[in-house]
Simulated scan of single mutants.
Amino acid sequence: MEPEPLPSPIVLVLASGRGERFAASGGTVHKLSALLHGLPVLEHTLAAVRASGLPWHLEDVGHPGMGDSIAAAVRATANAPGWLVLPGDLPLVQPRTLRRMAAALYGCAVAVPEYRGERGHPVAFSAQCLPGLLALAGEQGAASVVREQQQQGRVRLVEVDDEGTVTDVDTVQDLARAEQVLAGRLTLP
């Protein structure tokens, strides 16, 4: 008899931001609605999440800051065994990376993806991080929770081969770069 699989953490797709940097860089629509290869940025992110097969929650109610968004999403899914925090503006993240980060969470409190030495998203949090995540507020994300767990030796860095973990769309220039990366992926044999 095979062991029962461990319950999967929930992917929290954060889509509550105001997108002010995108507008300041010349964007005429909200960054998550900007078209990337014919589809809105957020739709690319959600397609990857759906393809991962992991449970997910979209947090798209306006919140004053990233910390507020994370806390609200965690509150809405408080019974989860853990969470993968994924900003909606990472349209190139790959489904296999989401699954890998979910698997990496077992045996640690926090798992952080690294692409060529650069930390990215989704950052995975176990249920033991619930109080810290619920306490988040304001502009800062969950860096304080990561630091707290790191001080206790409970953070795992996970090397990933996925440029999408560090390719967010904050400006129209970022959108153009994402378009180039995506076009390169689509032309690979």
Rank of each mutant, 00 (worst) to 15 (best):
G17H: 13
F22S: 00
D68K: 09
R100G: 02
S52K: 01
V93Y: 05
C129R: 01
L39K: 12
E179G: 04
V172Q: 02
G65R: 09
E4G: 00
V11K: 07
A102L: 00
R177W: 09
A143C: 11
A183H: 12
E148D: 09
R185M: 07
G117V: 10
T77V: 06
G184Y: 08
S16D: 14
P91W: 07
R50I: 14
G17M: 14
F125M: 05
R75I: 10
G164S: 01
H30Q: 13
L182A: 04
G17R: 14
S16I: 13
A72R: 11
R99P: 01
P5E: 00
P189Q: 14
L14R: 07
S69C: 02
G53N: 08
M101F: 02
S8I: 03
V172H: 06
F125I: 03
A48Q: 05
T171V: 07
E159W: 13
G67A: 09
D60M: 13
D89E: 01
R50A: 11
Q149P: 10
L136Q: 07
A104S: 12
L36C: 05
A111D: 13
H44K: 09
T28D: 14
V160D: 05
L186F: 13
S52I: 01
L35A: 14
V155K: 06
G67P: 09
V169F: 06
Q128R: 15
D174M: 04
Q94V: 11
S52A: 05
V29N: 06
A71F: 11
A135S: 04
A103V: 00
G141T: 06
Q128D: 15
V85I: 08
E4L: 00
H44D: 09
H30N: 10
A142R: 00
L175E: 01
A183G: 14
R18A: 15
L134F: 14
E163I: 15
Q140I: 03
A109W: 07
S144K: 04
